[in-house]
Write a protein that binds this DNA or RNA. Structure first.
Lengths: 188, 188
DNA sequence: TGTTTGATGTCAGTCGCTGTCATCAGCGTA
DNA sequence: TACGCTGATGACAGCGACTGACATCAAACA
């Protein structure tokens, strides 16, 4: 017989997403999240650094997927296209968790502090992509610019995917956005 | 005879920048900032929404300059080049306040919470630029992509300008970064 | 001269977050 | 079997960020 119910982290994440969605992020206390998960406030902070981080538990695996896909991309591909393929792989992952991703994004969009946290996670993705590009031989500032541009493409595509009523294909939206960026940066 | 010393906001900003630089952001309390400015903690929060915001008082005027410059750009210029000229104008402004900008940036770079705040300010700039582009007739998602790409260029250029020991010209760095982005997104 | 205004002070209170110590089922080991 | 160790959790005190409510009082105004 286990001493505690298993998967404390999962229960905390579920409780937090539900409460943030019902009452809003600011109107929810950490004590309430912990109580719904059958735990105490102190235990919440043993699992998550702060009240926001509980919504971003999956960021690490997304970053791993991005970096690994980019690292495995063909050397023949131009850096921007290698980044594009990595972004599409991330798009596939997010689309598989479609309902969860949309609910989570609605909560984040409703609160400025959560948007801040999301932005720094995106910046972390860009930094990781830039490092991988450098390991592939891309020099600075090309590596950082390619990575930042890629993340910008991803952000715009994800934004429209979340909002759209008709569930368009996220990887396709990413490809479209990338083509749009190329068109927009092409000289007149 | 004035009832209070004038320029409470300016004194708070100076005190905050100095203390954040000396002890670090986390090790500084709002009460200490207020005391150095000859005020109370409560008054600090009447001028700034939170402990971070005191470092971003100039963000509004920077955004105004960006938007106005973009709005006044020649209709003949491609959107990305109109954005580039606005970014260069912002670069001139920052370069004029060179020492202050560098000291401020060192403080921000040293703390994650401050980097989060800076990222959302940059995102706000991108949103404002995208709106101005739309008013100039650019459609979505081209407007958002152009704005986001422009901010990415600005971020990379500003980063290297801050770090560089030799004080290269910031507007020139922005032009170089923009050209690098165009090269990087050009098809193979 | 009386009134209003606006920036500030004072104080109490909530909540995010941390340090510290106690608890106790399960595990390995003698 | 008995014993000690481990690791996840609970309990509690405390700090600092931030807020609401009320008081103050010089300056501007009627």
């Amino acid at each position: 017989m286990a001493r505690w119910e298993p998967d404390a982290r999962g229960r905390l994440e579920q409780a937090a997403l539900a409460l943030y969605g019902e009452r809003g992020f600011e109107q929810t206390t950490v004590a309430e999240i912990a109580a719904r998960a059958g735990l105490t406030e102190r235990t919440f902070f043993r699992h998550y650094a702060d009240k926001r981080e509980v919504l971003f538990a999956g960021a690490g695996s997304l970053q791993d997927l991005l970096v690994n896909t980019l690292a495995d991309a063909s050397d023949a591909a131009a850096p921007i296209d290698a980044v594009a393929s990595a972004l599409e792989a991330a798009g596939v992952l997010l689309q598989e968790r479609g309902d969860f991703a949309r609910q989570r994004q609605a909560v984040i969009a409703a609160n400025t502090e959560l948007r801040e946290r999301e932005l720094i996670k995106m910046a972390s993705l860009a930094t990781a992509l830039a490092g991988t590009l450098r390991r592939r031989g891309v020099k600075e500032p090309a590596a950082s610019l390619t990575a930042e541009a890629g993340i910008a493409v991803f952000r715009v595509a994800f934004e429209s995917w979340v909002v759209e009523p008709t569930q368009r294909d996220l990887p396709q939206l990413i490809r479209d956005s990338m083509n749009e960026l190329k068109a927009v940066t092409a000289g007149t």
